[in-house]
Nucleic acid binder design. Structure first.
Lengths: 293, 293
DNA sequence: GCGTAGTCATAAATTTTATTAATATGAGAT
DNA sequence: ATCTCATATTAATAAAATTTATGACTACGC
């Protein structure tokens, strides 16, 4: 069994035609016939039913099942190649969602510089979902991910770096600005300016709404935190942000949530569980777990 | 790239010797050398550092990383072959833990017989952990699993078939035998006879103990439910069992737990998410989800 | 119905790839 | 220095994949 045969088979499954598959790979049609026959012989099972009144190829149960495995195998090879390319370049591909890239990661970077590690990093900003996908497919070595729950995935290993609270920000002129804390259910009538759905803030907000059985109105959504802070400062509405993203110099007041049960913003360092950390990667992981805050 | 090369490489990784690897596969030593060189060429990366004062082979970072992928790939092929063998035999390999095999499954079997499906089943009794492993490695097609939490695994798909309560059984002479329900925390001083650690009962028991901050004494553990019922009937202690395993004719009294939050015994039908259900398997899945109770 | 086009299988020839036997190289041990 | 052990190299050979040419079958248009 060789990889080329598997590629032929996969393509045959997609194309449903020996001839088209052969053209795709710029080989002759009997090449495909022979490759599939070899697979059938090795697996001792018929994979495709040819002819069958000649309209269409039909894949047997074995063939359908085998194709799933082939997909996995080819994916695994793809991942391997990507990882090896990255190792050769001696670059560590680190994924970051924008909030972590903007607020958490900079605090780590002086440490990274002092150990001369920052220059080896190739950072990729993206949404959490896409980052997870890139990790699994070998497009990233490590990612810092924000989430509301610890990441549970058999294919991934994670270290919890930090747990941050979510806070409410209001204009300094807002009646709530004098308070230190507020219960989420008391925000029922407040107009919210929110980060959009790609941020886990919306999951945490959803969770708080559900458990308090209220549905505060969201009057505006954006993916730009500066815009949110500006609108809140001008008292157009209030917002819900992880404390990490709220800086002392921001022209807004931040209140804690007094809810006993409340979601947390978790920052985790994640990599494929069968990823082998290189020496540099290990240094980065050590530094991050050590200097986590 | 072909599978044989990957096998050679994997073995080389384990043996740390070209010569031994060659002997293992009954091929000449240059065969291994050439195969590894082909891999290195295709991946455009050095995988092994040879010689190096001749003591030992050293695998590069790329080599170590690649080996992990090779393991996955060979595992996937193994799984594929096992699945295809099962498809050819037209047998559906169903895994069951003993409790489900003894108490839940029999209630389904008349349905299975009426659709002439029972004869196509190959049932395998085993512990839940092992069953999961067998599913993933392709040794089983479908499993009925008992658990305290819904199974969350990217590689598996599941259908919830049934949720059962856990109950307390006591001797008919026991003071509690007159009651209908009891709070777990009131069982602090009772001696328990328990199923052993391989059963999820121990997880549920642990959970109840933790949330009630008590630690009832377990005076005996066994994996035989009949033994437990016998000992309870003779008032040697009380026990904690899923209601599913308690039959009307059992010479014991069963009490509900009055705890508001309490674990449930969940029965789920599980299969690999990239498993292709054959027509027969689909019938079985339909029947089970339909006649679940 | 008959010819034509499209699809896949088969067979023999050819090319490519994997394996072997023989030998070289290099390092540590004696 | 020479022997031993482990891997690399080379040329010859065996094995496997691919191609070209062709055949068998079917669907479709006329």
């Amino acid at each position: 069994m060789n990889i080329k045969e598997l590629q032929y088979f996969q393509r045959l499954f997609q194309e449903n035609s020996f001839t088209k598959t052969a053209n795709f790979f710029h080989v002759s049609q009997p090449t495909i016939t022979a490759a599939v026959q070899r697979l059938e012989k090795e697996l001792d099972a018929q994979l495709v039913i040819r002819d069958q009144s000649h309209k269409d190829l039909i894949f047997t149960d074995s063939g359908k099942q085998f194709e799933k495995h082939v997909e996995q195998i080819l994916q695994e090879i793809e991942t391997a190649k990507l990882e090896i390319t990255a190792i050769k370049k001696e670059k560590v591909r680190l994924g970051l969602p924008p909030i972590i890239g903007g607020y958490y990661f900079p605090t780590l970077s002086s440490q990274l510089v002092s150990q001369d590690l920052l220059s080896q990093l190739d950072t990729h900003e993206d949404g959490s979902k896409l980052l997870l996908n890139k990790l699994i497919t070998g497009h990233l070595d490590i990612a810092l991910l924000g989430s509301v729950q610890p990441i549970e995935n058999d294919q991934l290993s994670g270290h919890m770096l930090s747990r941050k609270k979510f806070k409410i920000i209001v204009s300094r002129n807002h009646p709530l600005a004098q308070k230190k804390a507020v219960a989420f259910k008391d925000l029922q009538r407040e107009p919210f300016i929110q980060l959009n759905e790609r941020f886990i803030h919306s999951i945490a907000f959803e969770q708080l709404s559900r458990q308090n059985r209220i549905k505060p109105e969201i009057i505006y959504r954006t993916n730009d935190i500066q815009v949110i802070k500006g609108m809140v400062a001008n008292n157009i509405g209030i917002s819900f942000l992880t404390e990490m993203a709220i800086l002392p110099q921001d022209p807004v007041a931040a209140l804690e949530l007094s809810d006993v049960v409340q979601p947390e913003f978790m920052i985790q360092l994640v990599y494929r569980s069968n990823h082998v950390l290189t020496a540099v990667q290990q240094k980065i992981v050590n530094l991050m777990t050590q200097y986590a805050f």
